[in-house]
Design a binder for these strands. Sequence first.
DNA 1: ACATGTCTGGAACAAAGTTCCAGAATGGAT
DNA 2: ATCCATTCTGGAACTTTGTTCCAGACATGT
Lengths: 230, 230
Amino acid sequence: MVRMTTRTSRTGRRADALSKERIVAAAIEILDADGESALTFRALAARLATGSGAIYWHVANKGELLAAACDDVVARAMAPAGRSTRPSDAVRNAALGVFDAIDAHPWVGTQLIAEPWQPAVVDIFERLGAPLEELGVPASGQFDAASALLSHLLGLAGQYAAGARLLPPDADRSDFLRDVAERWASLDPEEHPFVHRMAARLPRHDDRAQFLAGIDLFLAGVAGAADPAA
Amino acid sequence: MVRMTTRTSRTGRRADALSKERIVAAAIEILDADGESALTFRALAARLATGSGAIYWHVANKGELLAAACDDVVARAMAPAGRSTRPSDAVRNAALGVFDAIDAHPWVGTQLIAEPWQPAVVDIFERLGAPLEELGVPASGQFDAASALLSHLLGLAGQYAAGARLLPPDADRSDFLRDVAERWASLDPEEHPFVHRMAARLPRHDDRAQFLAGIDLFLAGVAGAADPAA
DNA sequence: ACATGTCTGGAACAAAGTTCCAGAATGGAT
DNA sequence: ATCCATTCTGGAACTTTGTTCCAGACATGT
């Protein structure tokens, strides 16, 4: 009787045996410590004290590895969400949960937008969309509203990841903001009046608060569409 | 007297001379015809009948090349926007202009989110934010509102680009949507009630209309914040 | 013991970005 | 007209990375 399954996690194997879980965990450590560009199969093999071929026995390719790492982080971020709150808070909590996860692991942002059909994104979509019913959004508008929320979230995720890619290790974020503000301020006020004006506000802005403000704008719009007479 | 500048575009040079413009134009052709993965310096050199070294004399690296190509497309997309319309229509027009550009050139989406500090994004930010003043959004909220609009746009851009990366050449988009709908429908209705419900709506949805609906949700929220008493 | 299927480690390959450099092309100075 | 410095070109070569291949170690059932 031949066991054809690949994933047999049999009982007695040496303790330091490779497994998809251990590989994903090591990948997350590398990504968090040294950024996206540091995750190579060679670095991973070195950290696991093995060869790249051994890794490929457990993981099909780099995309699958990244997706698994991303799922892992997102699943953890989604877990602690009480169902007891108001629906608008449910949306806020879900969004902030993902925001905080991306803040802690910027590479998740890259992965989320790189492959929007992966399970993690579907989960996020669910969490953002489910409360809309209770908010009184008509069925016909729920898809549009949830998609807009998701796009907002993914867009921010992408920008965050891009920022992390630019700033080598961690670096002082306020220095970076000051640089951008200077560049904005030096733009021609005739051609870019708005950006020129916003330059003054950039240095003391709070990413998280700004993100939440965006969510609230959405929710305000949704509420208006839900009961235009109220 | 030595001319130190690099960019002297002198008058008499042979007609088929390389230039950043010609290189960018060729890059756009390749990107549009065969997708992001087809743009390599070797392919570019082959199309321009030269070597990769010659290209590097005009362009610092691949990032700069992509940014230039992206700027080119975005600049064209922004051009035809009358200032005569209502401010809310100005926002819609700017957003739809970028949407249509991304629809025609999905690789622009990748580039926009990959480097959100590039000029093209600043331009978009300007066009999205400038009308907010006329909409009566208080100065303190304009930054938040414009950022939210930008994130929404970039998020959608990323998803569009991801879709184009997945579907090899052009392929029938409705086939793809049907596949995704099936996968959504096969999810556990207990765990993913919302996504499960949305599966039915997915096949006959319109990307552009959905994007515009998102913008309108935002504008509705912005209007509410602008004059909560009206 | 032996055979079979599972798993490992590292060599080897292919593709892509980038660097290097020898030399052609060009325009000004003598 | 000749020479020279500079600009520009073409392609070879280097480096890194994802991926494939494969020889063999390990464990298990007969």
